[in-house]
Amino acid sequence: MRFANWFTPAIALARIAWLRTVLYLFVILDMHAFVRDTRDKGEHPGLYQPLLLARILDLPKPSVANTTTLYVVLIVFCLIGATNYFPRIAGWVVAPAFTWWVLIGMSDGKVDHDHLALVIALWVLPTVKAGSRGIASYGDQTKSEAAGWAIRCVQICVIATYFLSSIAKLRGAGWTLAWPNSAILTWAIVRRPHPVGEWLLHHPWMLHVMQWVGIIGEFCSPVILWLKGRWQLLGALFFLGFHAANTAILLIHFLPTVVCWLAFAPLERVVPWYRARSDRKAGEAEDQTEHGRQAEQQAGA
């Protein structure tokens, strides 16, 4: 039972509402900034090589008609889902539609590894029944195990992205620890030259230190699932720093994974915090007018 409960912590529905808004809007950004060649592939399916999932489901070859439909459907239903009105209906449309969108985008011989958490998040979010609608949902403090499960799934996928990266590195070296001492970052920089990287090419030892920090951090990442409060925040900051370094050295941002770190954040506290703050401000303002009146009276006296 303890095992089952770990997968279903009771978490306030407000966190789901925030995630819905942020992630559905992020999908729209993603379609234009990251996986943005899906419609091009509909126009020119020459290099289309369907991935396993597309073959199992026997999905049709991308065409102008189906990729344009996907585009319009995604924009409309992401906007609906982001409002937290009819979030489940919108969510059940967005999840398969975006999965297909990304499948097409990656069906040309190159697969990116930054979409796991986002795609799974889209599939689990609509399983949560919302307690309140629209604006009210951002402050809904009702705790729910269904919400907790969805959030736990996203957290697991975020962490899996790192942990499984370290496993892939061990596997890539024939299950040895050759990767951190290899010239992989040198290789990456030679193929994508830029000023920071070219400076680092003269100091291979620094690249080796980064490789060790990277693989050890990735391998230990599951610990974050059991950390609490500040320690968990520290773990999250380590990986955000890791992404900043990756962006500087490899020009790889991993934003679709980064945005899913929000599943760890106590977003349900935003509204109470904001209310307390504005209450305090209002209180202070009242105090001040009170002071002013007293001062006036004194001056008049």
Binding site: L52, M106, D112, H113, L164
Partner: peptide
């Protein structure tokens, strides 16, 4: 995908 290996820059 999405259940494939996280093999970006995993080669030695």
């Amino acid at each position: 995908w999405p259940f494939g290996p996280m093999s970006q820059y995993a080669g030695s």
